[in-house]
Amino acid sequence: MIKKPSRLLKIDGDAVVKEALRRIEQPSRRLFLRRSLSLGGLSLLTGCTIVDDESVENALMKVSRFNDKVQGWLFDPKQLAPTYPESMITRPFPFNAYYGEDKIPRVDADSYRLDVSGLVADRHAWTLAELQALPQSDQVTRHICVEGWSAIGKWGGVTFSSFLARVGADTSAKYVGFKCADDYYTSIDMPTALHPQTQLTLTYDGQTLPPRYGFPMKLRMPTKLGYKNPKYIQAIFVTNTYPGGYWEDQGYNWFGGS
C-alpha cells in the first residue's frame, strides 16, 4: 500500500469541499484565466480590449453547470454504450493520466483495503479477495478521451450497482465520490453509478488489472469520458455534497458524459 496522508483515506464532505476551494485559489487557476484570455482573437471578436477575466470565466462555468443538468436530463439509464468484438480491441491500449508512466503508483495487493463511507449501511473496508469473490462480468467497450481520441478495451469486474446494493448505499443520494492512490479524485451522478455498464473493474483483457491501467481497481463507465473513470481507487463515498474532481475543479465539465 502506498503511504498516504490519512485524510485521503477517511473522506468527509467538508474536507472535500475545502480542498476544492483551496485548489480554486491556486496559482494554476489564475494561470488558466490568463491563458484563456491571452488570445488576441477575443478582443477582436468582442470589439473591446478590456474583458473582465473573472466574469468571462464565471459565465463559462455557469454554462458548464447548465450543461451538467442538460446531460443529466439526456442521460437514459437504459441506453447501453455499444459493445465490440474482441478482435476490435485497441492494442496496445493507451496509458493515460495527468502524469507520465514513470509515476504509476504501485499498490500492494495484500495490504490493500477499499474504504467505503458516506451514506452506506455497511462501512467495512474491502480486501481485494473479497472483491474478487463477488460475481464478475466483462465488457468490450469504447473509451472516449476528452482530448478526442478513443480506444476499445476489455474490462472485467463487479457491476457497480450490485456493489452499491451490497453495501446498502442510499441510491437516492446525488453523488458517488472516489479517492485514488495517485491523488486523483472524481465524482459521478447516482444514475450513472447505477447504469448496468458501470463496473468496478478488477481485470483488463482477462488478466489482473495491470498497474498502468489502475491496479488494483478502477471504475469503468462507457457512458462517461476517460477522466471520469478513476484508476487506483482506494476510497468510495456516497454523498449529497458535491465532491468535484481533479480535472473538474480546474474547469473540465463535471458530468463528462458521452
Binding site: F32, R34, R35, S36, L37, S38, L39, G40, G41, L42, A59, L60, M61, V63, S64, N67, C145, V146, E147, G148, W149, W247, Q250, G251, Y252, N253
Partner: peptide, 28 residues
C-alpha cells in the same frame, strides 16, 4: 489536444488557452 492529421493549428488562432478552457467556450 489529439490531432486527427499530421498538423496542429497555431496557438495564436485558437480560443480557450488550454483544452478545458476551449471546451468551455465550445460547449457554451
Amino acid at each position: 489536444a489529439s490531432p486527427l492529421f499530421d498538423f496542429k493549428f497555431a496557438k495564436e488562432i485558437t480560443l480557450g488557452g488550454w483544452l478545458g478552457g476551449a471546451i468551455q467556450w465550445h460547449f457554451a
